[in-house]
Design a protein around this nucleic acid. Structure first.
Lengths: 338, 338
DNA sequence: CTGTTAGCGCGTTCAT
DNA sequence: ATGAACGCGCTAACAG
């Protein structure tokens, strides 16, 4: 492999000025067709690629996007590494010429946006924020820096901000209704942290369905939405709080799987003694025992929309904040009683 | 928040030269204690951070590390998003002042290392390659560019290269021996693609254990190590190839979980009709039905070692390639018959 | 101990 | 249509 050369060296080889090559590289006008072809050929031949640091310094564009999520201490949350959302976003960003810098932040790292070195160093051009666990204050401060920010699977109550979500409320309404159609009247909703967008929306969908049928709400908020939390909380609920429930609508699949595991330990049969459903349709949902009835979210599409919108934001500074809602659909398996 | 200022602006404010500030920023000698303190205070006050592109251009260090893995088309491979290895590596790299650029490559993107724009642009300082599915030729070519490269959960037969792996062979030996101690004599090893480091090593461990006890090897290679592959291949094997086996040692947990799912569909009881064990101890292994006996790999530690070694490589150009092997340990659950 | 100067490799005026 | 010259923000070599 030949040694990499830079603009000036290539220019000397071709007997043209660096500006000419630069114009060709960036598809600018003002180059004769003949020289353009000659330059193009040489670029090909020498495999010339411009140095990204130099380009960044000059253009103030880094070509990097930060993909930020909250670091979970608990294992097995379904929103993090058990969804390939990151891979979808990365490949989509790269198609558009951007690299993905992955960052997962601990709670204390979200205290002050100024601690985000990445930002102050001007190391990225924009941000994708994943999930509801990143603190709203942090997102607001980030947004105020002026760089494009878009939320994936989250929304902000405080301000209008670009985001892409699924039909959290409708999905939850539908699956709750499905439980009701199975004949259940005493249905528990196992929610995530209060204030989390997905928790609130999915909870609202559940409430709506319950009210529509004149039943009584039973809601428990958890401090996290993981398998382990699902286990611990379900045990507490079934033994001490709502021993009469016959069905559980969980805020996500991880929680639902935890509930099922715990129910089995407690000697309950699913779905006969207790029916359980989830939300997300993570890859493992079809392999739980029994297979989990849940709500499918189309994260690959959501990822594409997120990236495409971010690109727009990058190019046109001041667009009006837009919320994109991607449809969900019910996935019927066994855990509901079907 | 005050407008960000740059080196020169700060220098003017302080009535010192830019070099003085630069020296302070980079902890260089040659600054009077008094001025150093004054500068330090100002840096604090104005929250000055140097521009990363400019720094990169000057120092030829980008502060970025590429974390490369192979994109899997099949769902549910255990080495990708179901292990939080990426998060461990990212947080560890960041502690050392580096950002993680995540890239997952399709097969055709691994054909020619020159297609890796990232590399030719000089956008990263080094590479971490994840898993055995990244093509050896690609890794070799990458290594030849001169940038530091380290392998995570993989090794190269062709050349000596820095890598960190677990005790693949010993772990596999131990768990196979465990099956033998359960009384099994006809044990199948479900291996991954031929040539993959983990496949070959784990297979070797199995063979060693089988030979040590004078039994006969039964090995099937799969083209991928996913749940879906585990299902399909197990069905084929049990019906047409080795209908007499009483135990399966799978090359990883995903495969093992697939086998268990398929076995259940075929009406077989686990572990009575067929015992199944895996490798990796992914978070979901404890929740399979029955809970999976497997080999624990300590990926958080492996991640730390990988990063720490990469940092050394970054600082000292020519160290001798080193292979780090992190111990594994048996995790006994139910699927083995215990 | 401190400041002046000269690039790093590009993109972009402004001449011609 | 092309080239010369400048500067993005920083570090480092050299002077003083």
């Amino acid at each position: 492999m030949a040694k990499d050369l830079n603009l000036k060296e290539l220019a000397i080889k071709l007997n043209v000025s660096t500006s000419t090559i630069s114009r060709v590289m960036n598809d600018k006008a003002g180059v004769g067709e003949e020289t353009r072809q000659r330059v193009l050929k040489a670029i090909q031949k020498y495999n010339y690629v411009s140095n990204s640091s130099a380009r960044s310094l000059k253009t103030s564009k880094t070509g990097n996007i930060a993909l930020i999520s909250a670091k979970r201490t608990d294992r097995l949350s379904s929103s993090d590494h058990h969804h390939p959302y990151g891979e979808y976003i990365e490949s989509e960003l790269r198609k558009h010429g951007y690299y993905t810098i992955t960052i997962s932040l601990k709670d204390n790292e979200m205290e002050n946006v100024n601690n985000l070195l990445l930002l102050r160093e001007k190391h990225v051009d924009g941000f994708i924020i994943n999930g509801p666990a990143v603190k709203p204050k942090f997102i607001l401060d980030l947004k105020n820096t002026g760089l494009p920010v878009i939320l994936f699977g989250n929304e902000l109550r405080q301000i209008e901000i670009d985001c892409v979500v699924c039909q959290d409320r409708k999905g939850s309404y539908d699956i709750t209704k499905h439980m009701i159609e199975h004949g259940h009247k005493k249905i528990l909703f196992l929610s995530g942290p209060e204030g989390w967008y997905t928790s609130e929306e999915r909870k609202a969908g559940y409430i709506e369905a319950i009210k529509d049928h004149g039943f009584q709400e039973r809601i428990i908020n958890m401090t996290d939405t993981t398998i382990d939390k699902g286990k611990v909380v379900f045990k507490e609920v079934i033994e001490n709080i709502h021993p009469d429930i016959t069905a559980v609508v969980a805020v996500n699949d991880a929680t639902a799987i935890g509930v099922m595991d715990e129910a089995r330990i407690l000697g309950m049969k699913i779905p006969d003694d207790i029916a359980v459903v989830g939300f997300d349709n993570i890859p493992w949902a079809s392999l739980s025992y029994p297979p989990l009835t849940t709500v499918q979210t189309f994260i690959e599409e959501m990822g594409k929309i997120t990236v495409s919108r971010l690109i727009d934001l990058l190019e046109k500074p001041k667009l009006h904040p837009t919320k994109s809602i991607v449809a969900t659909s019910l996935v019927i398996r066994k855990s509901c009683g079907c």
